[in-house]
């Protein structure tokens, strides 16, 4: 029971604190690092298939999560959607989107591993992120598959995970409901929370600046000359000498190099 309190009563709030705090911190202090870090320049044949597959897949998955978690069972039943109907649609759409996401991320990981320049540009941070991301997708997809092919459950996630999720917003976490959920759902939820915890510190942050405002802004942007001074030290990011591999960070590299002696061409 203690563990249930920690995992389903405390961890979600810790996760939100880290997610929001991390995003605010990064937005304020690391605008320069806030980018998609696109590798399309290196390779675009596999990217062209993998990236849209993954991104569109995950967008549908997100919508599915919102619907499944936010809308109470009573509401859908009130408008005449039977349990059966709901599940056919949810699982159908969910598995298609989930498999598209998984195949997409699979292509992207394969591309990352096999294309020399892309692999060279992959940081440890990226690798960690990919592990958690793929684990979350796999766990999520397995919950879907278990509910299709596995033993029929009287109590579905709509009676366990969803009420708990909603209760979090009233600061009265319904720990008991979540404790009822099956292992697969618990695992998926935990990995999901892990993903949100690392989110602000990985390249995934680009999702939070999805350029929706582009649809509404004027084409031509005028801006007055900035009065703010810019430090002119050689320590500015993005100013590492030629020959610095992508995965090395500027600062670490500089220190390392000054120890090892100059190896770059002059």
């Amino acid at each position: 029971m203690n563990w249930d309190v920690v995992l389903w009563g405390i961890l979600p709030y810790v996760m939100v604190a880290i997610l929001v705090g991390g995003l605010v911190w990064r937005y304020r202090y690391d605008q320069f690092g806030w980018t998609t870090r696109s590798s399309q320049l290196y390779e675009s044949r596999l990217l062209r298939i993998g990236s849209p597959l993954f991104h569109f897949g995950i967008l549908v998955v997100i919508v599915g999560h919102v619907i499944g978690l936010v809308i109470p069972k009573a509401w859908t039943e009130a408008v005449g959607v039977s349990e059966e109907m709901y599940h056919v649609v949810a699982l159908g759409l969910g598995s298609v989107a989930g498999i598209a996401t998984l195949v997409g991320v699979g292509i992207l990981v394969y591309r990352r591993r096999t294309t020399g320049p892309v692999f060279a540009a992959t940081t440890k941070n990226d690798k960690t992120m990919y592990v958690v991301l793929v684990a979350a997708i796999l766990a999520g997809l397995s919950t879907t598959l278990i509910s299709v092919f596995g033993p029929h459950e009287e109590v579905t996630y709509r009676d366990t995970v969803s009420p708990w999720f909603r209760s979090l917003f009233w600061f009265q976490p319904d720990i008991a409901s979540m404790a009822e959920a099956s292992f697969a759902f618990k695992l998926h939820t935990l990995i999901g929370m892990a993903l949100f915890i690392i989110w602000p510190f990985t390249r995934l942050v680009h999702a939070f600046t999805a350029p929706v405002q582009y649809l509404f802004r004027p084409y031509i942007v005028y801006r007055s000359r900035d009065g703010r001074p810019v430090p002119t030290s050689s320590g500015r990011r993005g100013w590492a000498p030629i020959g610095t591999p992508d995965r090395e960070r500027d600062r670490g590299r500089r220190r390392g190099r000054s120890d090892a002696g100059s190896t770059t061409r002059r």
């Binding site: 980018t35 998609t36 870090r37 696109s38 993005g238 992508d246």
Partner: peptide, 8 residues
């Protein structure tokens, strides 16, 4: 141009 190191 795309700076492939900074992603900008």
């Amino acid at each position: 141009y795309f700076n492939h190191r900074t992603g900008k």
